[in-house]
C-alpha cells in the first residue's frame, strides 16, 4: 500500500485549527462551521482515545477476493465493533445534541436504544456499510426511532470507531493494486481526494512530479490510491467523460466530475496546498465547491452531513 498522501494527523488540535481558519477565510460558511466544530473535535479525540477494537474470531476475506475488490469488512465484522460503537455514542451523541438542538431528544433516544440493545449495533453497522437505506430505516422504526435522525447520526457515530479499527487493520492492506473507487477497509465511498505531494524519496535532483491521486474514505478516513483518470463512482476511465474545475486563483482546490454518472468529488492538490487539513474533515473546507458542483447538476460521490445542500 502506498503511503497516505495527507499525513496531517487528525487530532483535536488540528481539527480546531481548521475550524478557526475556516471562520476567517470563509465567513459565509458560519452555519456549517458552528454546527460541526464540536462534533468533529470530539470525533478526533475519540478516534485517538478509543481502546483497541476486539477482533474476536474475525479474519479478513481471502487475499484473492480482496484483489478482486472485496473490502476487509465486506464479509464479517469484528466482534468488538458494536461495543466500540456504543462507547462512541455515549460521548458523541450529547455533543451532537448540543449542536443540533432540534433533534436533541431523538438523539438521546437513539443512544439509549443502542445501549439497551433494542437497536442491534451489528445490524446497524452492516446497514450503514452496505449503504442499505431501507434496512437502516427498518431498524430505526423497529426500535421506535426517527429513521431520518438515525440516518443522519449513525454514520457520524460509526466514524470514530471505524477510524480506530482502520488504523489497526492497516497492516493487512498490501500492494498498490486496489484500483477501486471504494474503501479497501470498509467499502465506503470517498469524501474527498488528494493529489499527492512530490515524492519525498530523499533524491537530491528531481523530486518528482507528485500528483498521484488518493481518496479518503467518508466512513473510516482511510486513504488509498486510485489512478487519476478513473471515476471513483462508476470507474469510467474515458478521458472525454472526466473533467475538473477550479475557482480562479485557487490552484489547490478542485472538483473532479464524471459525465458518465454525473458524480463529483472535491479534491485538494497537496503540491500547492500550504497547510492541508486532516483527511477526516478536509471536505468541510471545500463546501463552496460542493455548491458549485451541485449547481451544475452533479451529485456528490458520498453524502456527507455538510454536503446536502438541497
Amino acid at each position: 500500500m502506498l503511503e497516505p498522501a495527507n499525513r496531517t494527523p487528525t487530532t483535536p488540535d488540528t481539527v480546531r485549527t481548521v475550524f478557526a481558519r475556516l471562520r476567517e477565510r470563509k465567513p459565509d460558511l458560519r452555519e456549517i462551521t458552528d454546527a460541526f466544530e464540536e462534533t468533529s473535535v470530539t470525533q478526533a479525540r475519540l478516534a485517538e482515545e478509543l481502546p483497541l477494537v476486539d477482533l474476536g474470531e474475525w479474519s479478513p476475506p481471502a487475499s484473492e477476493r480482496r484483489c478482486e475488490g472485496v473490502s476487509l469488512l465486506a464479509d464479517d465484522l469484528p466482534a468488538g465493533l458494536p461495543a466500540t460503537l456504543i462507547t462512541v455514542a455515549d460521548t458523541l451523541l450529547p455533543v451532537l445534541g448540543r449542536s443540533f438542538g432540534t433533534i436533541e431528544g431523538e438523539l438521546r433516544a437513539f443512544g439509549l436504544a443502542l445501549a439497551e440493545g433494542r437497536l442491534d449495533g451489528a445490524a446497524l453497522i452492516r446497514a450503514v456499510l452496505d449503504r442499505n437505506r431501507l434496512g437502516l430505516a427498518g431498524l430505526a422504526e423497529a426500535a421506535g426511532l426517527s429513521p431520518g435522525v438515525v440516518a443522519f447520526a449513525a454514520p457520524m457515530v460509526l466514524a470514530p470507531a471505524l477510524a480506530r479499527l482502520a488504523s489497526d487493520l492497516a497492516p493487512l492492506l498490501c500492494g498498490a493494486s486496489w484500483g477501486k473507487g471504494t474503501c479497501p477497509v470498509c467499502g465506503g465511498l470517498p469524501a474527498v481526494s488528494y493529489l499527492g505531494k512530490r515524492d519525498e524519496d530523499g533524491n537530491e535532483f528531481l523530486v518528482g512530479g507528485g500528483g498521484r491521486k488518493f481518496l479518503v474514505c467518508s466512513q473510516c478516513a482511510s486513504q488509498w490510491h486510485l489512478p487519476r483518470v478513473t471515476c471513483p463512482v462508476c470507474e469510467c476511465t474515458e478521458s472525454g467523460k472526466l473533467g475538473y474545475f477550479r475557482v480562479e486563483g485557487c490552484d489547490h482546490e478542485r472538483i473532479d466530475y464524471c459525465e458518465a454518472c454525473k458524480s463529483y468529488l472535491p479534491g485538494i492538490d497537496l503540491r500547492a496546498a500550504l497547510d492541508p487539513a486532516p483527511a477526516a474533515i478536509a471536505g468541510i473546507e471545500l463546501v463552496h465547491l460542493d455548491l458549485l458542483a451541485q449547481e451544475r447538476g452533479y451529485r456528490p460521490a458520498a453524502e456527507l452531513p455538510w454536503n446536502r445542500l438541497d
Binding site: D201, E204, L206, G208
Partner: peptide
C-alpha cells in the same frame, strides 16, 4: 543528461544515492 533529459538524471542521482 541533467539539462536535456532531466528525467533520466533523476535516476542517475538515485544510482548515486
Amino acid at each position: 543528461a541533467a539539462e536535456h533529459h532531466p528525467i533520466s538524471f533523476r535516476w542517475v542521482t538515485k544510482a548515486k544515492d
